[in-house]
């Protein structure tokens, strides 16, 4: 089975079931959106899938391989990359170093090779060019604007060359021009064969970008389908408006 399949995924924090027996399949090659009211478990779902937290129950399989509860770096090696809500970069590393940190050494000996090998630096600069911040390559990430940090984070995720990319609120807190740019990038990357899974509250972006929308409420999917169908679904409206 190609793609990311989640079955019966459960994660509780104290008495709260943040993710509650969630089962959903994301087919390969699509731009999937994950929407739902605040606190519906989207980010915890992301964290379980990417190994940042261990699920209490359920399975996550990627291309038919069970990756449930694996270490986050192993899931990254399997080809799943992610961004974080509110954007996370390495503040006191330069932009280009932020990308070089994602280079996989391959072996113990090659881990001691210089981080600034020309091939790696060239690839990093190409990615910074792609997201439009190549002129800031030698600036520390903490000196970048929030929007630039968002672009840097995306470039960092791409440096690890993941097949599947999970974005947690890529449009959160950025201006409309940048949202558009991020949308264009996502579409281009999808055309190159990368699958996306995007948590987003900006409905315009969700509706224009995604092929498939999954709606979360109280820790599990309550509806899914093409954007137009989901938008008209009474169950979804009830979840959002508190029916």
């Amino acid at each position: 089975m190609n793609g990311l399949r989640v079955a019966g995924l459960t994660k509780s924090f104290g008495g709260v079931r943040a993710v509650d027996e969630a089962s959903v399949t994301f087919r390969h090659g699509r731009i999937n959106a994950l929407i739902g009211p605040n606190g519906s478990g989207k980010t915890t779902f992301f964290n379980c899938v990417t190994g940042m937290v261990k699920p209490d129950a359920g399975t996550v399989t990627y291309h038919g391989r069970d990756i449930t509860g694996r270490g986050a770096h192993k899931i990254a090696h399997a080809g799943i990359g992610r961004s974080f809500q509110l954007c996370r970069v390495f503040p006191r590393l330069t932009a280009v170093e932020n990308l070089l940190a994602a280079v996989r050494p391959g072996s113990v000996l090659r881990a001691l090779a210089p981080a600034r090998l020309k091939a790696d630096v060239d690839r990093a600069l190409a990615l910074l060019t792609r997201v439009g911040i190549e002129h800031l390559a030698d600036v520390e990430a903490r000196d970048l604007s929030y929007g630039q940090q968002k672009l840097l984070e995306l470039a960092g995720v791409l440096m690890a060359d993941p097949e599947t990319i999970l974005l947690d609120e890529p449009a959160g807190g950025v201006n409309p021009a940048l949202i558009e740019r991020i949308g264009v990038l996502v579409r281009e990357l999808n055309a190159e064969g990368r699958t996306f899974l995007i948590v987003e509250h900006n409905m315009d972006l969700v509706m224009s970008l995604s092929d498939h929308v999954v709606v979360f409420d109280r820790g599990r999917p309550i509806a899914e389908g093409p954007p137009d169908a989901v938008r008209a679904d009474p169950v979804v409206l009830a979840a959002y408006l508190g029916g």
Binding site: A72, P91, E97, A101, A160
Partner: peptide, 24 residues
């Protein structure tokens, strides 16, 4: 100046972020 060192510095800056990028 090594890749190993870059990984260590990434850990210093943000360990979870480093993990998500594949740093063991």
């Amino acid at each position: 100046r090594s890749r190993f060192g870059m990984g260590l510095k990434a850990i210093r800056e943000d360990e979870d972020k480093a993990r998500s990028l594949g740093v063991p």
